[in-house]
Simulated scan of single mutants.
Amino acid sequence: MPAFPTASPTISPTLSERIASLAAHFDTAILPAWTGPGWHAAMQLAHEALDGATCRPLPDRRYRAMACARQLYVFATSGNLAHADTLFGSLGHYFGDGAGGWIYSVDANGAPQDTMRDLYTHAFVVFACAHYHRAGGSVAALETLRKTVDVIEARFGDGNGLYHAALAPNFAENGAGVLQNPIMHLTEAYLAALEVTGDKWFAERLPAMAPAVAQCFVDPANGCVAELPQGTPGNRIEPGHQFEWYSLVMTAPALFADTPLPASLRRAFDFARRHGVADGTLGVCAALDLGGALQDGTQRIWAQTEFARALAVKGIVEQNPAPLVELEQWIDRFRSRFLHAGGWHECVAPDGAVVRAEMPSTTPYHLLTAYQALCALK
């Protein structure tokens, strides 16, 4: 991966302590939940969600390939390679065709349920395999990564430099169109693949995608990456995705330097911070309209962690202590509003009332990607 600035601004002892507290909560509360009550030993898969109050598994109506891939990333990155080995085996057993294609979900008994070909799923398989290979050197993971990339490139391309969000089970077009979120996660996956393989193809493909992303999704008025292609009725801006895009692109500055995205995303960060983050709580709302007016005030935990990651990245990239001062405040408020002894609250209202209490198996991925960026400051 192109060089990312390694020197960080000097951080305060308070910020260092607060980052350590988040990491400790992750190690002592989050990880054990998914090898304990969150683990379905008979299925060799994580339950889809745990009850937020009791930490008991909620009834499983399905298991998603994306959820399995995210758990694989979490345990590979956290150093539990034995559990990661099991998850990698389950990923291929339940969801893969052996040739780089993946179905969306299986039912509660492990039989294929939704067999559509989802770009989001394929991207997370690449991402998880990259991290699993990096952690343990798995040759099978690297082979799976390469096969999956081949399928993505051969099947999902839209002919305009981007990718269809989903395809029919036989990989035929199904009218799903192009959406920014799976393309963002494909960018994340290809960055991870570049880091572990050093393959120059990824270094060429990523900046080649960027102008197409900008043309299709970036609102010229504010630099934000909209959820739907520009001009689509009902389009919206999710502040969390502005912070997520910012973090991804700014951690590879040389790679994207000659593309429109860095300049746009600096504006998008400012727009999302101004309109999408509550000054009192530093809570990030779910959605804005294109002018910045509040559309959905729900505060989802993943958007909070993306704000934190972006603050950490901004502090490093700009060698600026100001985002880190705000990060210190954010951790204090995040801990009190979203975390509890047994885990986390998935969604809260602006006033702090819990509006979604269950804990999905997919959320530890969001926590860990943010915490890694924070720990890089220390």
Rank of each mutant, 00 (worst) to 15 (best):
A268P: 01
A212W: 09
Q295S: 12
G136A: 11
Y132Q: 00
G283M: 12
Q299V: 07
T86L: 06
A268C: 00
C216I: 11
Y190C: 02
G38L: 06
H25A: 01
P239M: 01
Q242Y: 01
Y132N: 01
V218Y: 08
A108Y: 12
H275K: 13
W344M: 03
R146D: 05
I301S: 07
P364M: 06
H93P: 05
L290P: 05
L248D: 05
R337I: 08
H241I: 01
G98L: 02
P233K: 07
G100R: 04
V125H: 01
A341G: 11
F26V: 01
N170H: 12
V317D: 08
P112M: 02
F338I: 04
W39T: 02
R309D: 05
V139T: 15
Y120W: 10
E195L: 11
A349I: 01
A24R: 15
F95I: 07
V149Q: 00
P13V: 10
P57L: 11
G240Y: 05
A221T: 09
P323T: 03
A82R: 15
S21D: 06
L194D: 04
L265R: 06
D97A: 03
E318Q: 12
T10H: 14
F127S: 04
T281W: 00
W330M: 10
Q304N: 03
M209D: 03
G100L: 09
R18K: 11
P2K: 15
W201D: 13
A286G: 13
A176P: 01
D270F: 15
A214T: 03
P9V: 11
L294I: 01
D97V: 00
A111W: 15
E227F: 14
W302I: 09
G297V: 10
H164Q: 14
Y94L: 05
G79I: 02
H122A: 07
M1S: 09
D351R: 13
L179T: 01
A128Y: 06
L255W: 00
K378T: 14
L282C: 05
W302S: 02
P321Y: 11
G234I: 09
G175W: 11
H133R: 10
A272E: 06
S21M: 07
L31F: 12
A41H: 14
Y73R: 05
P32C: 08
A208D: 10
R146I: 02
M250T: 08
P220A: 04
T121G: 07
P5E: 05
G101M: 02
P9M: 12
H83D: 00
A278I: 14
V317G: 04
K378Y: 14
G136I: 13
Q372E: 08
A7P: 08
L81E: 13
D118Q: 04
E328C: 14
N80A: 05
H25S: 00
L265M: 03
G89I: 12
H25E: 07
G89Y: 11
V218T: 10
A168L: 15
I30R: 03
G52Q: 02
R300E: 14
A208M: 09
D258I: 13
M359N: 04
M184L: 14
L194Q: 12
G98T: 04
V74S: 06
N235S: 03
H25D: 03
E326G: 04
L206S: 03
L81M: 14
L288C: 05
L142A: 05
Q113W: 08
T144N: 14
K200G: 14
A226K: 11
G283Q: 06
P253Y: 06
A67K: 10
A193W: 01
A226G: 12
E204Y: 12
F88K: 07
I30A: 07
L91Y: 07
L50V: 08
D199R: 04
L288P: 10
